[in-house]
Amino acid sequence: MTQDLFYSICGIALFGIGLYGLLIPPHILQKILAVNVMGTGVFMVLIATAQSRAPAIDPVPHAMVLTGIVVAVAGTALALSLVCRIYALSDDTEQDAGR
């Protein structure tokens, strides 16, 4: 098994773990973290792809990952601010606020 294939499979596994975390546990913070884990999995597949055209390293997937990180930060921030707002409007933290 080549190195880049190994990392790709790990990335897809991370994507799967994140998917489980998003769909199954009821807590909203877990879901938001799970989305980030899924994103990391995708980024890992992309980084491995950059490596797969050895000996040269392809910079395009790196640029995609950088953009993806920015998007992930923005999405996470929006989700957390929505959670804070919902929390402020209610006194029950363990609500299943979304899925």
Binding site: I12, L22, I28, V42, T49, G75, A79, L82, G98
Partner: peptide, 19 residues
């Protein structure tokens, strides 16, 4: 919030497909 999480899930599936 639900819309956001669904949207992020959809985007990430799409991005993995593009990768």
């Amino acid at each position: 919030l639900r819309y956001l999480l669904v949207g992020l899930l959809g985007s990430l599936c799409y991005l993995l497909g593009v990768a």
